[in-house]
Simulated assay, not measured.
Amino acid sequence: MQETLLTGISRQHENVLQVIQSYYQLTKPRIILLLLITTAGGMWIAANGEVSPVLLLVTLFSGACAAGAANTINCFYDRDIDYIMERTRHRPLPSGRIQPRDALIFAITLATLSFTLLAVFANLLSACLAMSGIVFYVLIYTHWLKRHSTLNIVIGGAAGAIPPLVGWAAVTGDLSWAAWVLFAIIFLWTPPHFWALAVLIRDDYAKVGVPMLPVVVGNEPTARQIFYYTLALIPVTLLLVYPLHVMGAVYAGIALLLGGVFVQKAWQLLQTPSDLTVARSVFKYSILYLMFLCAGMGLDSLPITHHVTDVVAANVQTFISSFQA
């Protein structure tokens, strides 16, 4: 199976396994993993910790297909600049291992599969939300914002914030305030996460003319924005505790601990905005932050957690009452 590079050079897959691997790489699986964690978090909270295993698996697989479709189209659209950037030139399209036409067919197939599975096994709302995520990521972020505005990550982050809405809708068939708070958490988390990466690879973005914030305004203003967004993130995560009361003390403690470390790391970057080691630390921690925050949601949602916290609260109340008697 032979493909042609943008430069006219051709590459050839040696076996079927390499073909599968190339298509797998098109989907950007590491990004998909984070999106699926937020989807599962939305489902877990919506179901009060008791999610149907079949619905969970179907929704996560469908979400992976939708995200894979969006990422594949992103690779298709950006194959010109991906060839120039050192970090991305070995991707399947710029390296010539997959033809652009085949990538588009693959993306359409994934999107169709995602919509069909969600519509059949979950509901139409979740299916439409998944498709809206693809459209927003492709048209608003990739086509319009990424190459034309420093707000690309801020506004484009809305696409990455849709998966928890899909998970919530798959369970409940509607979207409550709690679902939109989950959306807001991912929306505010995205700029610190991606801008920290952009600081690390600023030269690559500058080379291809992509106006990421560090390229346009420099590292110091970018570090300041990272710090502000990280600060704003903490009270938003606590909205699930009060006034919405969908999360309890266990989640509140985890959210405060994780948020405190995140703010500390963002503050360190603000003090030394050109220190790439610190920027890398912020970027890596942002991934762990989101994973553990969603794990905290899952832990707090478990029936056994509710039972334990109720027992502890009752004992504390009894202890306090004994002193008041």
Rank of each mutant, 00 (worst) to 15 (best):
G160L: 02
I162Y: 00
I162P: 02
P163R: 00
G167D: 13
A169E: 12
A169R: 08
A170D: 14
D174R: 12
S176I: 05
S176F: 04
W177L: 15
W177D: 14
A178M: 06
W180S: 10
L182V: 09
L182P: 06
I185H: 01
I185D: 05
I186S: 06
F187Y: 13
L188C: 05
L188T: 02
A198T: 08
A198E: 08
A198H: 03
V199M: 15
V199Y: 00
L200M: 12
I201S: 07
R202Y: 04
R202C: 12
R202G: 08
K207A: 15
G209W: 12
P211F: 09
M212Y: 06
L213K: 08
V216G: 07
V216E: 15
V216N: 09
N219P: 02
N219W: 01
E220M: 05
P221K: 01
I226W: 01
Y228L: 15
L231T: 07
A232S: 13
L233T: 03
T237M: 03
L238T: 01
L239H: 02
L240M: 07
Y242S: 11
P243A: 07
P243F: 05
L244C: 07
V246A: 07
L256I: 15
L257H: 01
L258H: 03
F262K: 00
Q264T: 09
K265H: 13
L269W: 00
L269P: 03
Q271Y: 00
P273G: 11
